[in-house]
Design a protein around this nucleic acid. Structure first.
Lengths: 163, 163
DNA sequence: GAGCTTGAGTTGCAACTAAAAACTTTTCCT
DNA sequence: AGGAAAAGTTTTTAGTTGCAACTCAAGCTC
């Protein structure tokens, strides 16, 4: 990553804080993972994750509030509530996998199970990758932070974008 | 995501908890982001992030301890310490970007700045993508969790992998 | 239909973690 | 020598996490 530097000092403009408001909390990602794995009910999360009841309660509420999970009463048993991933929640899969793959690469080698596979050939997926605007995957060494006004401007001495 | 279900109940085998041990803490990702943006010194992080000194101190220590940042004395000024991303730290970029993109997609629309671009054409990067074993990017709808022993086994009734 | 069980939560309290502000140390600058 | 900068610690206060017990409605059992 030769020159992945930032030209100015205003780092505030970015979606990260938004994401972290929900997903930065202690159990959020573990709950999300359980959701992806077909866990849907309060008591299931509880025994699956080993989280405290009150914490689970407030996390689920927050995930619902942020539209990551949906809270629906179960037809047929009026005690039961089903927590289901929304599309917004499912869109967290790349983030979850990226994190997981990193943990796997550098953590103590755990034999992962279940394994996420490509439906087509049932072979394990590859790494989560950064793509260019045209879909090529790009290496982290080929990245650069530039000022908003300089997007698309290719190195012509000290030229500046106009407009 | 048609049948992204899990066959069994042992969700423990996965790199996610490993990753969350460091990156699940409150300021870790924000510190990481600042690092990627060329922030290297204690007082810089402090004013950039608006974090409390003691918290920053302990987060930096933890990130160093986990090999995500390196702590090196600066030649020429013996007061200064430089915190620098390691390769392990840089490998968190996909996770960071995935999170950030998600936040951007669903959060209040912020004009992001600086923008991460492809060095080649200086155009903004595309989405972080899940890839298949051969490098194709795959959609979340084409994914499936299967038991470790069933990897590569293509739907042949109730067949089982041997070995 | 009385009594037990299940599901999805609250409540109360102890232990831990984060935040703000002041203080400390060492080094540099003049 | 005196002041300021860099990178922390310490102290105090406020907020979170975690455990255990409790609630309360709905089902199940005989």
């Amino acid at each position: 990553m030769g020159e992945l530097r930032e030209p100015l000092r205003d780092l505030t403009e970015c979606g990260l804080p938004q994401a972290l408001e929900v997903m930065g909390e202690r159990w959020s990602f573990m709950i999300l993972r359980a959701s992806f794995n077909g866990v849907h009910h309060f008591e299931e999360f509880l025994s699956e994750l080993g989280i405290a009841r009150n914490i689970l309660s407030s996390r689920l509420a927050k995930l619902v509030e942020h539209g990551i999970l949906e809270r629906l009463p179960v037809a047929g048993d009026r005690r039961k509530i089903e927590y289901r991933l929304t599309d917004k929640g499912m869109d967290l899969l790349p983030a979850l996998l990226a994190l997981r793959q990193w943990g796997q690469k550098y953590g103590a080698q755990v034999e992962e199970n279940p394994v996420l596979v490509d439906e087509r050939d049932r072979l394990p997926i590859g790494p989560v990758a950064i793509t260019a605007h045209d879909g090529r995957t790009i290496d982290k060494h080929d990245l650069l932070f530039v000022h908003r006004d300089m997007v698309g401007v290719v190195e012509l001495g000290a030229s500046r974008a106009t407009g």
